[in-house]
């Protein structure tokens, strides 16, 4: 009897099986539900309804804005941190990095709940009373709080990997610190930025735990919308999910365009 040869390809089988059952099949199911009606006939009704309903368009645009703001804020905070950490000669910078990543080890619901209580405490003082009503602010704050490590880590890895001789070369050729940053560091850390952006942007469009708990469920992002629709109308819910999928696909495809493949390595967590 001859056993099938064990090759490296064999190692892919578990992943392939996983991919088929947990990615491809569910995707097909969503596609199926999105384009059928209650009697399971093919129908484009949901498609038309989605794009003619200002509520749904509004919600998806709102989520987009929230996600964009979250991403930008995360980037603005994370880049300097990652840069300083990566370029400094601190002996224990690993510890400092850990401090930023540590929150990820604590249960996420717990952290959001704690933040909610902090906001409530703060809004009791007269000067900060506006906080009680600032549901959008609190939602974005929570998202930033939650996703910041996902931005810092890939940035840190890419910036550390930049060859020191490049900085030296830049200095040799008379480049100022600013020029070095804009012509060397920034372009070379682009893969890190992109993978950080993807990892923050996508979940912040759908993470409705944050918007429910910090936005007092008065902020409805697209993820919550899908959840609500799945309570009673799977077909519409699937259609919204599908539209979101297209948006996500487009943004990933576009952002992938900034990098050539060999640079991405290591930056994609």
């Amino acid at each position: 009897m001859k056993f099938p040869r064990f090759t490296r390809k064999t190692l892919c089988i578990p992943y392939a099986v996983f991919l088929i059952f947990f990615v491809i099949v569910p995707m097909l199911v969503i596609l199926f539900y999105a384009f059928t009606d209650d009697e399971m006939h093919v129908s484009f009704e949901n498609f038309i309804k989605f794009f003619s309903d200002p509520t749904k368009l509004s919600t998806i645009v709102y989520s987009l804005v929230i996600a964009l703001v979250t991403t930008v804020v995360c980037l603005v905070i994370a880049y300097p941190v990652a840069y300083i950490l990566a370029r400094s000669k601190l002996k224990k910078k690993f510890v400092i990095l850990m401090l930023f990543v540590l929150p990820m080890w604590i249960n996420f619901v717990l952290r959001v709940n704690a933040l909610r209580e902090i906001f409530n405490l703060l809004s009791r003082s007269p000067a900060l009373e506006w906080l009680a009503d600032a549901n959008y602010f609190k939602t974005v704050f929570g998202m930033v709080f939650d996703f910041l490590p996902f931005m810092i880590l890939p940035l840190y890895t890419t910036i550390t990997k930049i060859d020191n001789s490049l900085y030296e070369a830049s200095a040799d050729l008379g480049g100022s610190a600013l020029t070095t940053f804009s012509r060397v560091t920034l372009p070379l850390s682009m893969p890190g930025i992109m993978s950080g952006v993807t990892m923050v942007f996508l979940p912040s469009m759908t993470n409705y735990v944050v918007s429910d708990m910090l936005g007092n469920a008065k902020v409805t992002i697209i993820g919550k919308f899908i959840y609500d629709y799945f309570g009673n109308d799977w077909h519409m819910g699937s259609m919204i999910a599908l539209v979101l999928l297209v948006v996500v696909f487009l943004s990933t495809w576009l952002s992938g365009g900034f990098t050539s493949e060999e640079n991405v390595r290591g930056a994609n967590l």
């Binding site: 368009l57 919600t59 709102y62 902020v219 629709y229």
Partner: peptide, 18 residues
């Protein structure tokens, strides 16, 4: 009723904002 609920929960943007 569900459409009503989604209208209530969603933040309505003006057309120009969209």
């Amino acid at each position: 009723i569900n459409e009503l609920w989604s209208r209530v929960k969603a933040e309505m943007l003006d057309a120009w904002a969209i």
